[in-house]
Design a binder for these strands. Structure first.
Lengths: 203, 203
DNA sequence: ACCTGAACACCGTTCAAGT
DNA sequence: ACCTGAACACCGTTCAAGT
């Protein structure tokens, strides 16, 4: 069992890291996080193997929260509206937290905790997508894995103008959503990603 | 007028930087670029104010090449096909060059050379979009500025799986293109970006 | 006028010394 | 068992000394 001060320092570090990462993104320094937590720089490496593992810990929490939002939306009456709210929640999380997008690209998929959280999110996305597809609101050739990848589309498209037009992601979320509707569906040139593709992506 | 060895070193640096950036992305070290060019580290700072300006120089060349592609496609018979080829060319450039996406986000928009190249690209995109819109192939509420922002959408959506599925961006390019068609068009919640938004985005 | 390489301030990470 | 801060190898950048 952990020593009392160690458990406290770990909690302080996670809290400080979450705050600094959301404000300044992935390139915030370890020194800054340690200072905010009130511990020495070296203490960070007593609790986490390196910066990447610390970032992964925060990233997991956010993935879990987003998955929970998706699971709750499965009980929403309108399958299309449920999917829209799920993707909106993901975009709002990314606007709120600068590091979330960056972590999704940078964090290692070999980390078991990240994989577990990703899988849970994928299951929620697949269930929401299946419901919307079966109801005819979403085109037949789109999968839950597609939706997972599309979660960061709107904010990334709008990112270059995020400084001057902070709400622009809403425009591109709706443009992407229109692409998911059956009305304009044309054949897609390559197969959807599989679970295997996600686990095999070394990065 | 520049000294002979200075002009030669500048050319060598740009060539080395372009190669290293396309292979390793923005986080390649100045030391590595200088070594590849066969000059001392300090020489880089005789020709460029810093790493950002060196990256901007490479970025400008690529923006110019893409703009030229767009201008040539204005003479294509089919307006929709011209737009598709323009967006495909942009995606292929991003797959070929790891640094291009990153530079678009990181490079300062205050640099006059970057601004000039961006404006040229924006004009080409606007002309291609107007033609496709007037022909009825593209929905009425989409602008050339939208298309500029959408140029990196497909590759960024597919980025997490680029290692295992290098052609996946084609799927999302077509999904985004389906969103641009009039058939599935629903009202977009916020106004398109303006030229002012692009110049005001401080980064 | 330009090139060079030592020097500086930073970063993430390691580790011997403490408690 | 954990915390600490000095030390290390890196990075981008500066600049005095050369030619």
């Amino acid at each position: 069992m952990p020593r009392a001060d160690a458990a406290r320092n770990r909690a302080l570090l996670i809290e400080a890291a979450a705050a600094e990462l959301s404000e300044h993104g992935l390139d915030v320094s370890i020194a800054r996080i340690a200072a905010r937590a009130g511990v020495a720089k070296g203490t960070v490496f007593n609790h986490f193997a390196g910066k990447e593992e610390l970032v992964a810990a925060i990233f997991c929490e956010q993935l879990g929260a987003l998955a929970a939002t998706g699971e709750a939306l499965l009980h929403h009456a309108d399958p299309w509206e449920a999917l829209v709210r799920f993707m909106t929640a993901a975009a709002e999380l990314q606007v709120r937290d600068r590091s979330f997008c960056e972590a999704g690209a940078a964090t290692s998929r070999t980390d078991p905790a990240v994989r577990a959280a990703s899988d849970r999110l994928a299951r929620a996305a697949e269930a929401l997508t299946a419901r919307a597809r079966d109801s005819g609101a979403v085109r037949a050739d789109v999968t839950g894995h597609d939706v997972v990848l599309l979660l960061s589309a709107a904010t990334q498209i709008a990112a270059p103008l995020a400084g001057s037009r902070s709400d622009l992601w809403r425009r591109y979320l709706h443009l992407v959503l229109d692409g998911l509707r059956p009305a304009a569906a044309h054949d897609l040139p390559v197969a959807p990603p599989t679970h295997r593709d996600f686990t095999a992506a070394a990065g």
